[in-house]
Amino acid sequence: MIHFLYSQRWLPASVLFLLLFLGTSPWQGVVAQDDLLSMLEEEQSKEPTYTIATFKASRLINGQTIETISKNHLNFWISHRFGAVNSGFIANFFGLDEAKIRLGLEYGLTDRWLVGAGRSSLEKTYDLYTKYKVLRQSNTVPITVTAMAGWGINTMPTGYVMESGFTMKFNDNIERYSYWSQVLVARKFDEKLSLQVMPTLIHVNKVEDPSIPNQLFALGGGGRYKLSQRVTLSAEYYHTFRELKGDEDGGGGAFPYPYRDALSLGVDIETGGHVFQFHLTNARGMVEKQFIGQNVGSWGKGDIFYGFNIARTFSLDKAARNTHK
């Protein structure tokens, strides 16, 4: 062995020389550091990177987005829908004389699960809902899926006249209930574009007329496009699939079918802890049962409502107290 090493002296000597050369050259340092970095890169890329901020807020315009809020965070929502733009200048100052309001609160039980409650002045409706983020988009998963379920109670006095012209009578409180559920599926395509589809099922315990179905299936589609870091365009459309009981014999009900699909266009502006959402919509309701199922406005006739949502997020996390603005 020893003899071999001596006789083949060139081998270790040359290798040693090469190592020595590499060790002292400045070029070697850069390569070695990059090697170290790529080792770190390889290790860190194994852990999933979850997509954040597919949407700016937990609501797109009227409806929900896949976004939930973080654990121990509270969202306060103030939503206004003014009167229709076509309601006249003298009579209604183009709609600004009146507004329907919804006040809402949302609380993050976990980073993926929220509960919410609200009260709308339209049909004096209280609503409760919960959302859970089932699947999160990441570098390996292409979409985010959130499941949502809600319940509402209409507290109008019995025998009131609805916006659609029907007279609604309630015999007991159970008849005032309605339920809705959604599967929200969204993908953030890049920094700017996010799209979402939302199959929706709505059930109302009591309908206003036999021509109106109790069960309603709707398919929503929507998205956002960021114009800048803080300004975003958004759109939302819900198409309803109804079995028109009254229409079988040529609109046989007492009225022509009064409800239309809701289309909303909006602009979101984000400033620190607030998100302002301004929009034009033919839907005046701010609860799923209303804006998807009982929407009387028509873009074609000019029943366009301007409205806004303001969301303010508060962190109730103890650790955040000291640093909270």
């Binding site: 654990k71 955040a320 640093t323």
Partner: peptide
């Protein structure tokens, strides 16, 4: 994305 803030917003 691994930087954790007390305020998630």
């Amino acid at each position: 994305t691994d930087f954790q803030f007390p305020n998630k917003l």
